[in-house]
């Protein structure tokens, strides 16, 4: 069964007198374990789409089923729980808590979860290990480089063992070397640990690390194809 099922999804932002349509009827499905890139120029509606997929916003019309349940069936409290337990978010600008250690940043989602506090440190340590930052666990995030900060954000997304990771332009603020390291981690999470990854990007190069690309333009799907020649951030992964 598909993890994500979107059918004729539309989104119109309305203020007092202005109606701004952003999505004009978008349909696709994403199966568990896939690595999908959603690509498009700025203003194409890709970020709005990700916000709806990530339960941060609601659609105007159409249906969105996550794990078989329609978004409209959830109360705000339930949406918060699904975000907490089944989704992980990675943002372009990292969004870490300032003046806070790597450990405490990674622990943040656990604060709002049903995981017993006794397991928090262990869980956080495993997530920090997975992004290769064990040696930085006690550091204040202000002391880290941009690439390291984004890896902290990925560890935070992982800590509750979510079913899907939503990454919104995760390499957008990074140099190519750090960007490559981030893509390597995302690919590893997808291929080794079977995490579903949904990546938003406007760069073809980054998108080609995914297994499938959905191109969005002016609120409509332009194309939806498997990547013929998939790029691998780590040379170890070249098939």
């Amino acid at each position: 069964m598909a993890l994500i099922e979107v059918n004729a999804l539309t989104k119109v932002y309305s203020s007092d007198e202005l109606q701004t349509p952003v999505l004009h009827g978008v349909s696709f499905t994403i199966a568990a374990g896939e690595f999908v890139a959603i690509m498009g120029p700025s203003g194409s509606g890709k970020s709005t789409l990700l916000h709806i997929l990530g339960f941060l916003d609601r659609q105007t019309a159409g249906t969105y089923r996550f794990d078989g349940r329609e978004i409209g069936e959830h109360t705000d409290r339930e949406l918060a729980r699904v975000r907490n337990e089944q989704m992980g978010f990675v943002f372009q600008s990292f969004n870490l808590l300032p003046r806070t250690s790597v450990m405490d940043n990674v622990r943040l989602p656990l604060l709002y979860s049903s995981v017993p506090p006794a397991e928090w440190d262990e869980r956080a340590r495993i997530a920090i290990d997975a992004v290769g930052l064990s040696h930085r666990a006690g550091f204040d995030v202000a002391k880290l480089s941009g690439g390291e900060r984004q890896r902290v954000a990925i560890a935070r997304a992982l800590v509750n063992k979510p079913r899907v990771i939503f990454a919104d332009e995760p390499t957008g603020n990074l140099d190519s070397q750090s960007g490559k390291a981030v893509m390597e981690i995302l690919q590893k999470l997808n291929e080794h640990d079977n995490h579903t990854v949904v990546l938003i990007t406007h760069e073809t190069y980054t998108a080609e690390h995914a297994g499938r690309i959905i191109r969005v333009r002016d609120g409509l799907i332009e194309s939806d194809q498997a990547v013929a020649k998939r790029l691998h951030a780590s040379s170890d992964f070249v098939k």
């Binding site: 941060l56 918060a80 975000r83 969004n95 808590l97 709002y112």
Partner: peptide
């Protein structure tokens, strides 16, 4: 931004 982040990771 902190409030937004906390909500995104599951704070009610």
């Amino acid at each position: 931004r902190e409030i937004g982040l906390r909500k995104a990771v599951g704070a009610t």
